[in-house]
Computed example of a mutant assay.
Amino acid sequence: MTKEGMNTYRTTAIVVGGVYLGGFVVGLAGTGLIQSILGAPDYLSTVSAKSMILAIGAILWLMAAVGDAAHGVMMFPVLKTHSERLAIGYLASRIIDAIFLAIHVLLVLLQIPLAGAYMKATAPTTFSLQALSTTFVQAIPYADNIGWIALGLAGLMLNYLFYRARLVPRWIAVWGLAGYAIICFGMVSELMGSGLGLVSELPGGLWEIFVGGWLIAKGFNASAFVSQTTRTSSTAKPEAANS
């Protein structure tokens, strides 16, 4: 592995770590802004006056969606050196996760035109608009849960490769495997009405905060790339001799 190649992986680690931490911040801030409006009673009558706040919250969630997709793209060349199939699976799962986060954003933004129509409407049209708005709001957790399931699957693939290739210390990979397995099972059960969705996010969420800081401070384990290069070279030599 050349020095230039190692510098590239170090930069990737810093950016990926920054996206982990940034995604946590914008997701938390976006949720707070959105819930401060849509979580209030008779929210549809207040959305028009607070549409800017709601839009900012939605944009923050959209940034989180872009960050999730970016994870798959940035990690692909790193993971591909150890397993192309799992690298593709990780990228695909991250994109699916991002798509459902984008659906979340769309369902939130639709409240703005609905609120505008609601303020101008008279009964019985107001009842229809309220029903449509409530349906969209109730659909948001389902979009989130499916996105979290995709995220959980992505995390399992990522941490399996982390463990196998020793890209990070193995105890971090084991923590990630456990955390994302809990997310998968928790979100599947949430779709069935268990109410465990929020609790199941905690181990994986804390892992993302920790590993974000770890990657920024320490990066990937350089020996994982050196050993992979050695294995590739040793495999190529017999093939060249046979030819």
Rank of each mutant, 00 (worst) to 15 (best):
S36Q: 06
S36G: 08
I37K: 02
G39T: 08
A40E: 13
A40D: 07
A40H: 10
D42S: 11
D42I: 03
D42Y: 06
T46N: 11
S48C: 00
A49C: 02
A49G: 15
A49L: 09
S51V: 05
S51R: 14
M52N: 09
M52I: 09
I53H: 08
I53W: 08
I53L: 14
I53G: 03
L54A: 09
A55S: 12
A55L: 10
A55C: 00
I56T: 14
I59W: 07
I59F: 13
M63F: 11
M63L: 13
M63A: 09
M63S: 05
A64H: 08
A65Y: 03
V66A: 12
V66R: 00
G67N: 08
D68Q: 12
D68H: 04
D68R: 04
D68W: 07
A69Q: 01
H71P: 02
H71Q: 09
H71C: 01
V73G: 01
M74S: 04
M74L: 15
V78G: 04
V78Q: 03
T81V: 05
T81A: 11
H82I: 01
H82L: 06
H82A: 06
E84T: 14
E84V: 12
R85L: 14
R85M: 12
L86Q: 08
I88K: 07
I88Q: 02
G89A: 09
G89D: 04
G89N: 07
Y90V: 02
Y90N: 11
L91V: 01
L91A: 10
A92F: 07
A92E: 01
S93Y: 05
S93T: 08
I95H: 03
I95T: 09
I96K: 00
D97H: 15
D97I: 00
A98L: 06
A98E: 02
F100Q: 02
A102H: 02
I103A: 15
H104T: 13
H104C: 08
V105M: 05
V105A: 10
L107D: 01
V108Y: 04
L109N: 09
L109R: 08
L109S: 08
L110I: 08
I112D: 09
I112W: 10
L114I: 15
A115Y: 14
G116V: 01
A117Y: 09
A117R: 11
A117D: 12
A117F: 10
Y118W: 15
K120Q: 15
K120D: 12
K120E: 14
T122E: 15
T122I: 13
T122P: 03
T122A: 15
A123V: 12
P124C: 13
T125K: 13
T125E: 15
T126H: 06
F127R: 10
A131L: 14
L132E: 04
L132T: 12
L132A: 12
S133T: 01
S133N: 03
T134W: 00
T135V: 00
T135R: 01
V137D: 01
